[in-house]
Design a protein around this nucleic acid. Sequence first.
DNA 1: CCTTGAACCTGGGCGC
DNA 2: TGCGCCCAGGTTCAAG
Length: 296
Amino acid sequence: MPELPEVETVRRGLAPTMEQARLERLETRRPDLRFPLPDQFSERVSGRTIIGLGRRAKYLLIDLDDGMTIIAHLGMSGSFRIEEAGPAEIPGDFHHPRSKDEKHDHVLFHLTKGDRSLRVIYNDPRRFGFMHLWTRSDLDLYPAFAGLGPEPTGNLLDAEYLAARFRDRIQPLKGMLLDQTVIAGLGNIYVCEALWRSGLSPKRKAGTLVTKAGKPKPELMALTVAIREVIADAIAAGGSSLRDHIQTDGSLGYFQHSFSVYDRETEPCRREGCGGIVSRLVQSGRSTFFCETCQK
DNA sequence: CCTTGAACCTGGGCGC
DNA sequence: TGCGCCCAGGTTCAAG
């Protein structure tokens, strides 16, 4: 379930462990995830020191001290966990029970930090995730980054920008906001949530939020604010849940939110005084949750 | 160019 | 402790 806030939470959870750690060895347990792993992946990163963890949209960036960056995308089901790799560790040792889905541990980062030995493990049952190795100074040339829209929390996202992108477009808002070239990092959940918060229907044609002169209507200004708030709130919730979120097994999965509409079909709308019921529809193959009563 | 739909892959939940 | 069906938060590619 990694949209931008989840990836940011993962980044914050991993940073204290990974930053300034030495990547002694990278272990790949299969040659590919969604795409082939980089050629000679282990050979090219082993022995490097991790100098920082970054994020662009839903991509996690692991910066190495030789100018290379590991670009990791969690797909739909990817997660990281941290394990202490102490001297007592024995495979199958009952003191160290193996997780049930160990078979989906695909990439293991064997780290040392001071006198500590750690492993950061990438697990991904569906294997929609992927990893690439890229020169950091050329990161903008990474194909998926080249056409990426602005970050929803950044200064480049404003109503004027969205007006320019929405103008004369007949595509429904739902699809438009999922387009990573329009805004980078929104996914199915937070698009539903932002539309609910701004009182706009996911079926609304994007162009109808723009005046003939190409200026943003008040509705588009409200949507812009809602997007920023939804993402900021989710990041704050992830950050505040981080301590609880890192379980004793070190897993960094996804925190629970209380969503306003997402996955709440047939439940009452949470807007004060609305009284509507959340409904679900399918738009371009994806579930959309919204309230017919208050989203117009 | 714009828009939609299918494909990639595995697992969980549900009804029978 | 089965079996089939539907569903899942993302991205890319092809075709209309």
